[in-house]
């Protein structure tokens, strides 16, 4: 069975979705990512969807699930590289991807994750109870 590769880069896991996602592939990605977050202790998950020509409610739900599960495991998910036509279509479809953080490109997504890791380290050193809270 096909699987989407997951790369580790510093504190983060990097996933580039390049194929037309079908059900089994989406579920396999969710499972693989979950395991990899735990085994690697990653603090962030960067999902690059710049190759995706469409995002329908199924793919949207997969992204939202991944973000939800990652959060449970103390990792932030950032979806990057959404095409303009996809953004327009998603809004009209009524899918706002709740709980999914986005960034324009991979570079900004990584910066976002690095910033949050730095914040968590600082707060963690001060033994703050809510290490991932927003300011």
């Amino acid at each position: 069975m096909d699987r989407i590769p997951i790369l580790k880069l510093g504190h983060s896991l990097l996933v580039t979705i390049q194929v037309d996602m079908h059900d089994r592939l989406a579920m396999a990605l969710e499972e693989d990512l979950t395991q990899k977050i735990v085994s690697s202790g990653a603090k962030g998950v960067l999902i690059d969807i710049s190759a995706l020509e469409i995002v329908d409610s199924f793919i949207g739900r997969t992204l939202a699930n991944i973000a939800g599960v990652s959060r449970m495991l103390d990792a932030d998910t950032v979806v990057v590289g959404m095409r303009p036509a996809v953004a327009i279509t998603l809004v009209e479809l009524g899918l706002s991807l709740p709980g999914v953080r986005t960034a324009l490109n991979a570079e900004r997504g990584m910066a976002l994750i690095s910033r949050r890791v730095a914040e968590a380290d600082r707060d963690g050193a001060a033994d703050a109870p809510d290490v991932h809270g927003d300011e």
Binding site: E53, V55, D56, A85, T89, E92
Partner: peptide
């Protein structure tokens, strides 16, 4: 147009599902 293509492909994907 690219946007219209994206819209109709997305709608078709929803309905096929």
């Amino acid at each position: 147009s690219l946007v219209d293509q994206t819209k109709i492909i997305t709608a078709a994907s929803e309905l096929a599902r």
